[in-house]
C-alpha cells in the first residue's frame, strides 16, 4: 500500500507541477518566446482594425490626435506587447471593419464588437467583457427616467438597427398597449448625431453602449447622468478571420495575463468603465 500511495503521491505531485507550470506559462508575458509559442506569427505585423470614433473603446487622444487610445486600443496594445508581436492600427469606418477581417485586409477587429452566434460563423472571437446599454440623460435627470418603463411619451435616440432599437420598439408597443403615450423614436447613423440630439434637447434619452455612457458621465458629470443600465447578456470580444489558431491563442493568452494582473481592470477604470463588466477571456469559435 505504501508503494501504491507513493505512486499516487508522485503522480499527484507531477500533475500539480504540470498544472502549475501551465498556469505559470499562461500568466506571464514572454515576448522573447514568440517563435516558440506562436511560430506561425514570427515576423508578422498584426493589423488591428478599429474605428477611432467609438469612445471609450477606440478614440483619438485629446492631447495628441495622432495617438489612438481607449479600452480596446489599450487592451490590444498590451496583448500584442505581451506576445512580443509587432502591430499597427488600421483605422476606418466601423461598418467596414468586419468585412476587412474576413477579406484578410486586417488581422483582427478590436473595437466594441458584440459576440453573436451568427457572426461567429464567419469570424473567431475572444470575448473579455459584458455588453450593456446605458441610458444617458442630461445631468440631474430632469425627466426622472429610472427604467425603460418610463419611456412612454418621451423622445429616445438610439443607433439604427441596434439592440437598443429593439428594446425601445418593444417598450413602445407596451406603452401603447397600456394606453399611454407612444415613444418618439430618433434612430441615428452615428453616435455624434445622437449626442447632438441629446445636447440640443431634441431627445430626452440617448441609448448607447454602457461603457460609453459611463465614460461620458465620468468625463462631463455636469452635463450627463446615467439614468439606468441594462446588462443585455451579450459579450464583447476581438475577432479574427476563421482558422487563425495562433492569433486567437495570442489574444486569449494575453488577455488572461492582463486579467490576472489586474491590468484590464486598470484600463477600464482609466476610461470610467465599470471593471465588474469584465469577464474571463474565453475563445468562441463557432
Amino acid at each position: 500500500m505504501a508503494f501504491k500511495n507513493g505512486i499516487l503521491t508522485a503522480v499527484g505531485i507531477l500533475a500539480a507541477h504540470l498544472a502549475l507550470s501551465g498556469v505559470a506559462n499562461a500568466q506571464t508575458c514572454e515576448p522573447a518566446k514568440l517563435s516558440e509559442k506562436y511560430p506561425s506569427l514570427v515576423g508578422k505585423t498584426i493589423k488591428i482594425g478599429a474605428d477611432p470614433q467609438t469612445p471609450p473603446y477606440v478614440m483619438r487622444d485629446k492631447s495628441n490626435f495622432e495617438n489612438v487610445i481607449g479600452i480596446d486600443a489599450d487592451l490590444a496594445r498590451a496583448t500584442f506587447d505581451c506576445a512580443g508581436l509587432k502591430y499597427e492600427f488600421v483605422l476606418g469606418g466601423w461598418s467596414g471593419l468586419l468585412p476587412a477581417v474576413m477579406a484578410g485586409q486586417i488581422d483582427v477587429m478590436w473595437d466594441n464588437l458584440y459576440y453573436k452566434p451568427a457572426r461567429a460563423k464567419t469570424v473567431d472571437f475572444v470575448v473579455y467583457m459584458k455588453a450593456g446599454t446605458g441610458a444617458l440623460v442630461p445631468a440631474g435627470n430632469p425627466k426622472k427616467v429610472a427604467s425603460i418603463e418610463d419611456f412612454c411619451g418621451k423622445t429616445v435616440a438610439f443607433g439604427l438597427g441596434s439592440v437598443e432599437e429593439q428594446a425601445t420598439r418593444k417598450q413602445d408597443e407596451a406603452c401603447k398597449a397600456a394606453g399611454k403615450d407612444a415613444v418618439t423614436m430618433m434612430p441615428f447613423q452615428d453616435l455624434a448625431a445622437g449626442m447632438r440630439q441629446l445636447e440640443s434637447g431634441r431627445s430626452d434619452i440617448l441609448l448607447w453602449d454602457l461603457g460609453f455612457a459611463d465614460a461620458s458621465v465620468k468625463d462631463a458629470p455636469t452635463k450627463y447622468a446615467r439614468a439606468f443600465a441594462i446588462i443585455s447578456g451579450l459579450t464583447i470580444g476581438a475577432a479574427t478571420a476563421n482558422g487563425n489558431a495562433d492569433l486567437i491563442k495570442v489574444i486569449h493568452d494575453g488577455l488572461t495575463v492582463l486579467q490576472s494582473k489586474g491590468e484590464q481592470a486598470a484600463i477600464f477604470t482609466r476610461y470610467g468603465v465599470d471593471p465588474s463588466t469584465a469577464i474571463p477571456a474565453e475563445v468562441k469559435l463557432d
Binding site: 469612445p55 483605422l91 476606418g92 467596414g96 476587412a100 485586409q105
Partner: peptide
C-alpha cells in the same frame, strides 16, 4: 472611403468629434 480605412478629412473631423463632441 473611410469604410476602406482611408483617413481623409471628413473621417478625421468625425474622429475629433467622436472624441470631444465639438461638432
Amino acid at each position: 472611403a473611410s469604410i476602406i480605412f482611408v483617413n481623409e478629412l471628413t473621417f478625421r473631423a468625425q474622429q475629433i468629434v467622436g472624441q470631444n463632441f465639438r461638432f
